[in-house]
Design a protein around this nucleic acid. Structure first.
Lengths: 159, 159
DNA sequence: CTTCCTGCAAACCTTTTGCATGCCT
DNA sequence: AGGCATGCAAAAGGTTTGCAGGAAG
């Protein structure tokens, strides 16, 4: 497991006999190379920088293909910026998404606790897990510092 | 922490000086007493059994009030049945939601791993967590048994 | 009596779909 | 050449909002 992590989505799809169009290649590349989590709107905007003509429907259709193929996962990052869904390449193991409720920054964390969780789920409920989505609402170090500074000047730290 | 778990939502809101209308009481009671996870559609339908006149907008507005007050949490149960959001009373500690991808059954699990996760997040990233949403895609024991039976008769177990 | 909530309807936002055309293999 | 993907526009699904009237404190 995980030996294909460095293959591009395009390569993987080609191997599976999926037709690769100009539009799909653009979206796949974006998902391969993005460092942030992209939603459909972002994807469309970025894709249009490369091809003015590309349509919203194509972005959604491509993303759905990838979801069904198990190559990307869908997140909502706790709806901190609206109702859109975010997409990321599926990695070898599930990880935690930590969202700063003050500045919106999203940090990822890999920890063996996730695997332990899957084990505990099976042992305690009999449910066999095939994927876990974990999203934490949090305050990032920077925003914590800011809040502390504000507190020491008498301001209250409202959620 | 947790000493108010047995107070009704209505009581808590009243304590906070929130106006309690007939409509709100109905929605609050439903959220207090439901054993399953309710979405806006369910809530509206159930509320209408008690008061034919109650409107969708009122349900949404009540739910939003509760969300902002931190009294309920919003889930999407991995979008296994559409894009609606589900609501549940916030409990003393976060727990895991396990969704059977075959039959749709949702099981909850409390485990100290969740608190460990929050600790690990803080120690390893400096993000201070105030709530974690965990949703696992899984197969429940019944559906596992069914799949096994099917497999032994030659059927394949397709995701 | 005032404030805030409600119902209604329309708007809004995100995602999906039907259809005619165009492109990949 | 054939089949599948695309663009377009319209529809669908879910949630929010403006406004006039009504109920709660």
């Amino acid at each position: 497991m995980g030996e294909k992590d460095n293959l591009s989505l395009a390569t993987i799809l080609a191997d599976r006999g999926v037709r690769l169009t100009r539009q799909r290649r653009i979206v796949l590349d974006l998902l391969d190379n993005s460092t942030t989590h992209l939603n459909a709107t972002n994807l469309l905007a970025l894709a249009r920088e490369q091809d003015e003509r590309i349509n919203r429907a194509t972005v959604y259709r491509t993303v759905n293909t990838l979801k069904r193929a198990g190559l990307i996962d869908e997140l909502d990052l706790l709806h901190m910026e609206g109702e859109q869904h975010y997409y990321e390449r599926r990695k070898a193991s599930d990880h935690v998404h930590i969202c700063c409720k003050s500045c919106g920054r999203v940090q990822e964390l890999e920890t063996e606790l996730v695997a332990q969780l899957a084990d505990a789920i099976f042992k305690q409920t009999g449910f066999l897990t095939s994927g876990i989505r974990i999203e934490a609402r949090a305050k990032c170090p920077d925003c914590l510092a800011t809040a502390e500074a504000a507190a020491s000047t008498g301001d209250s730290d409202h959620e």
